[in-house]
Amino acid sequence: MFFSGGKKRLFLIAALILLVICIYTAAFASEQVVQRKKPIYQGVPAKKQVSITVNVDWGEEHLPAMLEVLQKSRVKATFFMTGRWAGEHPELVNKVARLGHEIGNHGYSHPHVNDLPLEQNIEEIKKTSDVIYRAAQQKTRYFAPPYGEFNDTVIEAASQTGHRIILWTVDTVDWQKPPPAEITSRVLDGIQNGGIILMHPTEQTTQALPEMIKRLREKGYQIVPLEKLIAG
């Protein structure tokens, strides 16, 4: 088959355009994969929404009271649990899920994940997912690495297990057990649109929650589940 000069030029132009489209599409898809792997510190900045996350590896004695406050305040949070804790307290894991809160993955043994090889990081996440699913029939989709640590290996482990890494915008540092007013002040001083608030199940945090939620709402913030915050 032969082309005239004009048709040949048109064919080459069309082929070039197709090649450019293919390259752009591949680059865009690659960028999307990279974005999905990146740790999330914040939701959509354009929306006046925030989320509450609670990392749980201890504090089971305070969890029922915390759940009661959240229930009365009509707030859904995300509880990131370690596998070892979930295995010891399946009834609390189930209760969190039954009340409509999301359960996230906090690794199995709360290790320093940056020191672990890929295979061990994957095992930490998978074991925790299995324990939580047995207790609450809920699959974990988000991973909060212990101590907020991450590197390329941790990011890859989360990706291979189908999890997105969640960090925080505001750290209450409540594990140091400061007074409730100080916890509330830290949140209100550091909060911003799309903010992710990090907490732990402590007596002081539970006492701080009602006033904190009230003040956030007075500032015009909507407290939403993590999934909604990220999706925008």
Rank of each mutant, 00 (worst) to 15 (best):
A181H: 09
I40Y: 07
G190D: 13
A158P: 01
G148C: 09
K95D: 12
Q49G: 00
I52V: 15
K127A: 13
F143M: 12
D130C: 01
S51V: 03
G162Q: 05
E156V: 05
E156M: 11
V224L: 11
K47T: 10
A157N: 05
H110Q: 06
H112Q: 11
G190I: 04
T161A: 06
I23G: 04
L188N: 08
A65T: 05
M1G: 14
I52D: 03
L116W: 10
T202Q: 10
Q192D: 01
A29H: 04
K48C: 06
V69R: 13
F2S: 11
V93F: 05
I13P: 02
K76C: 10
V113Y: 06
V69S: 11
R9P: 01
D189M: 11
L10A: 15
I40H: 05
F3G: 02
P210Q: 06
A26E: 10
D130L: 13
L99M: 14
A27I: 06
A181F: 05
R9V: 14
L99A: 08
R98W: 00
I17F: 14
Q192W: 00
K7W: 08
Q35Y: 08
L118F: 14
A135L: 04
S129I: 04
A208D: 07
V113Q: 04
I21Y: 09
V170R: 01
R186T: 11
A26M: 09
V170C: 06
L12M: 13
F79C: 02
G43A: 03
Y142P: 03
L70W: 12
D174K: 06
S129V: 05
S30L: 10
L67K: 05
H106D: 08
I166K: 10
K48Y: 04
G87T: 07
K8L: 14
P210K: 04
E88K: 15
K126Q: 15
A97C: 05
W85E: 04
F2H: 09
T172D: 09
G87P: 06
E60Q: 12
L12H: 07
E60K: 05
K76I: 12
Q32L: 12
T172M: 04
V54F: 03
Q138S: 13
G107F: 02
Y41P: 00
C22N: 09
V187Y: 07
K76D: 10
M66R: 09
M81D: 07
G107M: 06
L209N: 03
V75N: 08
H62P: 00
R98C: 03
P64F: 09
E211S: 14
I191F: 07
G59Q: 09
H106S: 09
Q204G: 01
L99F: 06
A29I: 07
T161L: 06
K139Y: 02
A26Q: 12
R134W: 12
Q222Y: 02
T153E: 10
E88P: 03
G195I: 02
I183G: 08
P45N: 05
V75E: 07
M212E: 02
L116K: 10
L12P: 00
H112F: 07
P45L: 04
E149W: 01
H110D: 02
I230M: 05
W85M: 08
D152K: 15
P210V: 01
L19N: 03
S159N: 11
K48E: 06
P146T: 00
I125L: 13
T169Q: 03
P146R: 02
V96R: 04
E123L: 14
